[in-house]
């Protein structure tokens, strides 16, 4: 391992993920959390990103407290591609030496962070759900779930900088804290002919674009929903509660719903305030993705179903009756 002079590294950096001219929410969440960490460390929280036209984001990152905004603009960086984005970002980090770099644990973020950290020989903690500063030595403590949520680990990175982490969306609150960020614009020369990866086509299906972790109420259905058409019952109740709907893997495998709606070990991990599990048996792989929900309501015809082991409230009954009843009754109460 290469010995570093870690005292040269300063400030908390937050990567601003953007797509089609819009900032991903997790980046703003991380700015807010980054500001807290910066306070503990006695330094500044800064934003950074690369892309085609990214200076326009300065106003929004300022609203969420970024003191500085490091950017590289180049038309070939317009769409995310791992290698050129990595090289540009490595250039920024090498030059300005932040002591902490946080990246949202999104599909893009996890693709990017792994390669950036390797180029930098930096330590990278994955999919963190808690961030703290160790008061004794100012190291960043990053806590993350492993083994599908069965084991939590607190990771630290004592001898290397930057301390990098991808952070799960929806864990921290984005809080406004307006400043006017100083914009630091770097040039990174790269031309299209140097980039071997070509994007042929992008398919953005409105339906499939769903980040379950944004919702505070999730109504999820399993194989016990019986057939594809019945998933409408989930959507109806979710609409009444202002949430979204999700499914178990068996439902995805049956072709009733897209994978992007799947909760669990191989789907999304969610922690809404209210999670309703209808006709879901409660296999460990499913539970791993939802057990940190505040309230879990389980509806299952089988009183022995394992889902009841984690449910705050259990209902032994037919979800095809209970769900519409809930929709009907809640509608009356919530409309007021």
């Amino acid at each position: 391992m290469i010995k570093q002079d870690i005292t040269q590294y300063k400030n908390v950096w937050v990567f601003i993920e953007h797509n089609e001219g819009k900032i991903e929410r997790v980046s703003l969440e991380l700015l807010s959390k980054g500001a807290e960490l910066a306070k503990d460390l006695g330094c500044e929280v800064c934003a950074f990103t690369v892309g085609d036209k990214v200076e326009q984001f300065a106003k929004e990152v300022g609203e969420y407290g970024a003191k500085k905004f490091y950017i590289i603009e180049n038309p070939v960086l317009k769409e995310y591609r791992t290698e050129p984005w990595r090289d540009a970002i490595v250039y920024l980090i090498d030059k300005y030496k932040p002591e902490v770099a946080l990246i949202g644990a999104t599909t893009l973020g996890r693709d990017l962070a792994g390669t950036v950290a390797t180029k930098l020989s930096a330590g990278l903690t994955a999919d963190t759900t808690a961030l703290d500063i160790d008061p004794s030595n100012k190291n960043l403590l990053m806590t993350r779930p492993t083994f599908g949520g069965n084991l939590m680990a607190t990771i630290f990175c004592p001898d290397n900088r930057p301390q990098m982490s991808t952070v799960r969306p929806g864990v921290f609150k984005a809080v406004k804290n307006p400043t006017k960020p100083e914009i630091i614009k770097e040039k990174y020369d790269i031309t299209e002919d140097k980039i071997v990866k070509k994007i042929i086509e992008k398919v953005q299906t409105g339906e499939e674009k769903v980040n379950l972790s944004f919702y505070e109420v999730i109504v999820a259905g399993g194989k016990g929903m019986g057939k594809k058409e019945n998933l409408k019952l989930l959507e109806d109740l979710a609409n009444v509660l202002g949430g979204t709907w999700a499914v178990s893997r068996k439902v995805v495998q049956a072709g009733w719903a897209p994978q992007s709606r799947q909760v669990g070990q191989t789907g999304q991990t969610v922690h809404p305030k209210i999670y309703i599990a209808a006709g879901i048996s409660g296999a460990v792989q499913h539970v791993a993705g939802m057990k940190s929900s505040d309230i879990i309501i389980a509806i299952n015809t089988d009183p022995e179903a394992p889902i009841f082991e984690v449910a705050t409230y259990g209902i032994v009954g037919d979800c095809l009756q209970v769900l519409p009843k809930m929709t009907e009754m809640f509608k009356q109460k919530l409309v007021k």
Binding site: N19, T107, I199, V203, T205, K209, N211, S260
Partner: peptide
Amino acid sequence: LEGGTETV
């Protein structure tokens, strides 16, 4: 991708 797919 987060909200779809891309072909590269």
